[in-house]
Simulated assay, not measured.
Amino acid sequence: MTTLTTARGAAEQLAAQIPSAVPLTVAEPTPGAAPAAGASCVRAHFVGATSADLMVVADEVIADAIAAAGGDVSAAEILRPALEAAASNLGAGVLDTARVDVLGDAFGDADTEVFALVDATGTARAWFAMRVRAAAPAPAAPGHVDAASERSRMRVLHDVELVLTAEIGRTRLPMRQVLDLVPGTVLELDRSAGAPADVMVNGRLVARGEVVVIDEDYGIRISEIVATDGGH
């Protein structure tokens, strides 16, 4: 898979998760139409088999979401789920803390893949860019894997902290209903009462378990490990 294909897939994942009042699709940028160097941008670094810098310029489309939050959240927090979705296209790894920064000349870097996120009229409403920092070497042919080397490489990652989240269910709402949420609103999720919760790492399902209470705090008792595509 080429860097361009990977970056476009990441852009499509991100576009689907941005809390925009209008649907966004991925398009090639029009020459000369990139955001200004002084534009506000949210950046995050992904470390994994493929390491990359992810950048999003989306102040216009997330303005309603920030307003609905009452100013208590930043653009980085609003865009975090979208960045996690984009990072999921890069394989296993860890997404660093997202931060708000000035775009500068990042979109002009020859190694950076840039995409416009456009509305139904083709107007660019937001931007996504990805710069690959490093890629892991291709795996050896079956039967020639050096197990000792593999364990040595993995040992480097043993102390990397991963963020695990427990998800009891999901629902989808149009933006107008999200903006109308008030204390006391009841949302119906897509899961029955008593069903196991999903345990996620960077948006990927790794296990399922039962919600328990431990000294007045919630916990998860793992009941099932979900096999990855690699069968590990």
Rank of each mutant, 00 (worst) to 15 (best):
G38Q: 11
V182S: 14
G209Q: 02
A44P: 04
I168R: 07
A63F: 01
R191P: 00
G104V: 03
A134Q: 11
E167F: 11
L189Q: 06
A148M: 10
S51T: 07
D64C: 01
D229T: 13
D72P: 02
T121C: 02
D96S: 15
A136Q: 07
A207S: 04
A49G: 13
D72E: 15
A141K: 14
D190C: 05
A124H: 01
E28A: 07
V226R: 06
R172A: 08
V94K: 15
V160Q: 12
A21R: 07
T6I: 10
E210A: 12
T97A: 15
D72Q: 14
E188S: 12
G184L: 13
R208I: 05
R176I: 08
S192G: 12
T171M: 08
R170L: 06
T185P: 05
G108Y: 00
L4W: 02
E28C: 00
L162N: 12
A207D: 06
Y218T: 11
A86Y: 09
R153T: 09
D198T: 10
T2E: 08
V199C: 06
T6E: 10
G230P: 10
G209I: 05
A44F: 03
L4E: 11
M130R: 01
T165M: 13
V102N: 10
T2Q: 01
L157A: 11
V226T: 10
L173Y: 06
T185Q: 13
V42F: 05
L54C: 03
I222Q: 03
N89P: 02
L4M: 04
P81R: 07
A16V: 00
A227R: 14
N202L: 13
V163L: 15
Q177G: 06
V206W: 09
A58L: 03
E84V: 15
T6F: 02
D119L: 01
L117Q: 07
R208W: 05
D96Y: 10
V94S: 14
